[in-house]
Computed example of a mutant assay.
Amino acid sequence: MTNQLEQGTSCAGCGVKLQTETVDKPGFIPQAALAKEPAICQRCFRIKNYNEAASVAIDQDDFLKLLGGIAATNSLVVHIVDLFDFEGSLISGLQRFVGNNPVLLVVNKIDLLPKGINPNRLLNWVQKQTKAQGLRVVDIVLCSAKRNIGFERVIEAIGEHRGNRNVYVVGATNVGKSTLINRLIRDYSDLERELTTSRYPGTTLDAVHIPLDDGKEIIDTPGIVYSHRMTEIVPRDVLGALLPEKGIKPLVYQLNSGQTLFVGALARFDFIEGDRQSFTLYVSNALQIHRTKLERADELYADHKGELLAPPTKEQLEEMPEWTRHRLTVRRNSETDLFISGLGWIHVNGASGALVDIHVPKGVRVLMRDALI
């Protein structure tokens, strides 16, 4: 590429149109970097080399228009979800966007679950949850793109269902979409190209068209930002503690009613009523859990939030929404998870039922579901 920016040239990392005029706008690339091949914007350069990202917004109207255009195409839609945040990362209403195009559901990050989980049980659980959400799929594949687990099956499933179609890849932010697409490129295309991957939400800023060897394309769409996920609420430097990098080790607590667990300063779990029983936490092991009496919980939080109870720090908490309380009643003899989107879940082990409160930043989704494990 010459030192003149050709009109319409896109960043090879995130797909945004490149520009050399405004540093704080999407697609900025310094003049000196234009000669490099492939050309990537300054934001992608920083993510790839320094693991940092500037905050860049994408116009939501353009994004919805992009997603809504899929229905008019003849495509295979690959919907990638994060098993660790299944309900939080599933695209609600996807069916109306894709029309009659077949949907392949790829459930990523199975490596984060404890070892020894029965894959058939996982598959049955995903099928049930997917049906409950009203999403029709032609196939479901469990995998870990990062650990290269089950990826051969992803390739096979795409080959089985693609036919002579393009492939649209859709998903929420931070579900491992770009990591998986980079693997697809290596398997399906001679193109020496790698999308920008990072732990920051919204890394891909525009639709990225990747030519395949048979003349068709993989189209990577921007990640959907869902504000009901904890990962979208917290400051960026908290994501490292919030998002597990490897298999989580479940934490089991025997609690009497009137006891409280704090997950850093991100969430609070109150056991209000019920027989003594155990609760298992499935959250990132980088997060600190503190147990206290319910009667002391308010005081402990007021005195120690952002310090003993961290992350986030006191300063970061000021930028986050205030906590709101969710009261949940767990039925007797039910296999139940208490799910907190973007954080993980708490499994209720007792058969006697329980009345609990969960406090999280306002807007974060909390729900009861059939137990995953």
Rank of each mutant, 00 (worst) to 15 (best):
L205H: 06
P222E: 05
S352Q: 14
V77F: 04
V81P: 00
D298G: 09
P311M: 08
R183S: 11
T336P: 06
I110E: 05
G350E: 07
R153H: 12
L338P: 00
H347E: 14
Y50Q: 15
N182W: 11
V238A: 09
Q95H: 10
L195Y: 04
N100W: 01
V106H: 00
R331G: 07
M368A: 11
A72E: 14
L242F: 05
K249S: 13
L242S: 02
L191K: 10
F45N: 10
R296A: 14
N101D: 09
N108G: 04
G274A: 10
K146S: 11
T231A: 07
V169Y: 00
D59I: 09
L372T: 00
L212A: 06
V225Q: 11
I219N: 01
G116R: 09
G171A: 14
Q95A: 15
G240I: 07
Q7K: 15
Q254A: 13
F151G: 01
I289C: 05
L184G: 01
F45S: 11
R296M: 13
N256Q: 14
F63S: 03
C14I: 08
A265N: 05
R165Q: 11
W125V: 05
V238Q: 03
L83I: 15
D111I: 04
Y301H: 06
C143F: 09
R199I: 15
D24F: 12
R136M: 12
G215E: 10
L281R: 01
D337T: 07
S227E: 15
Q42H: 15
A132L: 14
Q95D: 13
L317E: 00
G88F: 01
D220T: 07
Q95I: 06
S352K: 14
A35Q: 14
H79L: 12
Q7V: 12
A241N: 13
I248H: 04
D337E: 09
T22G: 00
E319H: 10
G93P: 09
L300W: 05
I29N: 02
P38M: 10
A297L: 03
R365Q: 14
L180P: 02
I248G: 03
G88T: 03
I289W: 03
L308N: 04
H326Y: 13
E194L: 13
D206I: 01
D337L: 05
V16L: 08
D187C: 12
L5H: 08
S144M: 06
L328S: 08
E152W: 03
Q259K: 12
V263H: 00
A297F: 03
P222Q: 07
L66Y: 04
N349W: 06
T313I: 08
S89L: 04
L317Y: 02
T280V: 13
T231P: 00
T280S: 13
D62I: 12
A265R: 02
R236G: 13
T2N: 12
V364M: 08
I346A: 05
P250G: 04
G215I: 10
Y200L: 11
R165N: 13
P38I: 08
A297T: 02
R165M: 08
V330C: 08
F45M: 11
V56G: 00
